[in-house]
Design a protein around this nucleic acid. Structure first.
Length: 276
DNA sequence: ATGTCTGTTTCCTA
DNA sequence: GTAGGAAACAGACA
């Protein structure tokens, strides 16, 4: 489970972060014995010393997720309820949480290790595009998450439609905007647009009420299935399963898929299924 | 060897 | 308001 030479799984989007939440859950109610900072570069807005001191001897509480962010509150007692300081984790493109036994090999990409009596929780990240934040007061958690829209897994159809059409952009750009909706990344968004048969560049203003309802419904189903798998499945029935194939064909109609760029991101879509 | 590509966030300019 | 680009980062690949 640890010390791997490569990163398993897709880019950390909502389903992956939900998986990391379950990993971090193993430290729930456990006391931090020490914090090892192997690479201080992943600490954001806090230095090594303060980070270590603030968390040492605190008890990790149940982690919760908002979009692609994971929040781990701490308290002064095993079941003291959520409190601060809290750790806020973002996983960028290549981050993960791993639970390891003591004494395992430390991988060069293990950046921060939280030591507990039953094992270690490791923040692992090859590229260091994002990292770990420390919320010293309860208000700081809200501050750090203030710009985020509603979580994609919990948002209702009405708010979903309202927020998406509030902006005049291509649908893909709007879905990926974390301040509109929190949790979808490049892979999930392509998958969703394909399932709902919406062209990535269709203006959100041209989405009908039926389109919005379908997008919301497909988003729920996709996230449910992906969360169950702990990642976006690399399955042939999913568009995502064909991302890296040389001859990319639509799993639904076998049309050759098209690859374009939207907002600087590689975008995969079916010219026959997805209408503008 | 050098350049291109990958996807997330933040910041900048048009 | 929106679009586009760049930087941050490390590695795979041609």
């Amino acid at each position: 489970m640890c010390g791997r030479g490569w990163v398993v799984g897709g880019m950390p989007e909502l389903p992956d972060v939900e998986g990391f939440r379950r990993v971090a859950q193993r430290a729930g109610g456990r006391q931090v014995r020490s914090v090892r900072v192997c690479d201080a570069q992943v600490l954001r807005g806090v230095g090594s010393g303060e980070f270590q001191e603030a968390l040492r001897r605190r008890y990790f509480q149940a982690p919760w997720r908002w979009g692609k962010w994971l929040v781990i509150p701490t308290s002064g007692a095993p079941n003291g309820g959520p409190g601060t300081p809290a750790v806020l984790a973002h996983f960028g493109m290549t981050g993960s949480f791993e639970w390891c036994r003591h004494g395992g090999d430390v991988h060069p990409h293990d950046r921060v290790v939280f030591d507990f009596a039953p094992g270690e929780l490791r923040y692992h990240d090859m590229r260091k595009l994002t990292g770990l934040h420390l919320a010293r007061q309860p208000g700081e958690v809200d501050e750090l998450l203030a710009e985020l829209g509603p979580d994609a897994q919990r948002v209702g159809v009405e708010e979903f439609g309202e927020r998406l059409t509030r902006t005049r952009r291509g649908t893909k750009a709007a879905l990926m905007d974390q301040s509109v909706l929190a949790g979808l990344g490049n892979i999930c968004t392509d998958e969703l647009l394909w399932r709902a048969r919406v062209h990535p560049n269709r203006a959100t203003t041209k989405l009908s009420a039926d389109d919005l309802e379908l997008l919301h419904q497909e988003m729920r189903v996709m996230l449910r299935d992906a969360v169950r798998a702990g990642r976006v499945p690399d399955d042939a029935s999913w568009l995502t399963g064909h991302r890296d194939e040389p001859d990319q064909r639509c799993p639904r109609c076998s049309t050759a898929l098209r690859r374009t760029r939207v907002g600087g991101r590689g975008t995969l879509w079916c010219p026959a299924c997805q209408s503008d």
